[in-house]
């Protein structure tokens, strides 16, 4: 692949001059500190620059309990990234995540095709990056057990109906 295709969307179906919007959720080890997160973000900004991509949004969801242990870790710090780039950005982004030892898991989803890059300005400022390194002050409220019970009752009663018919 020649040098001039960097940052391009290499699909004949996509419109010329457009990019794709992706989002990635990263789970970091719970012992990663503020500097570790900042280091990761700054390193990724270099990757984005080299591949003509643009970081649109980055969020820290804070430390959450995992539904099951990953690499013997029961909690993890969730980072949410949203970015604009060409065909090659996801592969390079994920390659860098694999190398990083503080990353437990990551998952990338394509949000939109054929995005006009000028229509999506970046919301990233230096203040925001500092805020990302700090976990959010208020963690997610725990689920209300009342709701879950209600749903379970509804499903189980439906079950009974089905059995009655058959």
């Amino acid at each position: 692949m020649s040098e001039n295709t960097v940052g391009q969307v290499l699909s004949v179906q996509s419109r010329k001059g457009t990019k794709r919007e992706y989002e990635t959720v990263i789970i970091l080890r719970p012992n990663v500190n503020k500097n570790g997160i900042l280091d990761l973000v700054h390193r990724m900004q270099v990757v984005f620059e080299n591949f003509g991509a643009r970081l649109l949004k980055i969020e820290n969801w804070g430390s959450r309990t995992l539904a099951f242990p990953i690499k013997r870790s029961t909690t993890g710090i969730y980072l949410y990234w949203r970015y604009l780039g060409g065909s090659d950005i996801v592969a390079e982004f994920e390659r860098n995540l694999i190398i990083n030892e503080s990353v437990l898991r990551f998952y990338t989803v394509k949000v939109e095709d054929d995005v006009d890059p000028s229509a999506r300005p970046s919301e990233i400022t230096e203040d925001l990056l500092q805020a990302v390194a700090e976990p959010p002050p208020e963690p997610e409220p725990p689920p209300e057990p009342e709701h879950e019970d209600r749903d379970r009752d509804r499903f189980s009663s439906d079950d009974d109906d089905d059995e009655g018919v058959s």
């Binding site: 959720v25 789970i27 959450r64 995992l66 539904a67 099951f68 990953i70 993890g76 969730y78 898991r105 998952y107 989803v109």
Partner: peptide
């Protein structure tokens, strides 16, 4: 997708 990210079991 949520299971992949350990948001759901």
């Amino acid at each position: 997708r949520a299971r992949m990210l350990a948001l759901l079991p």
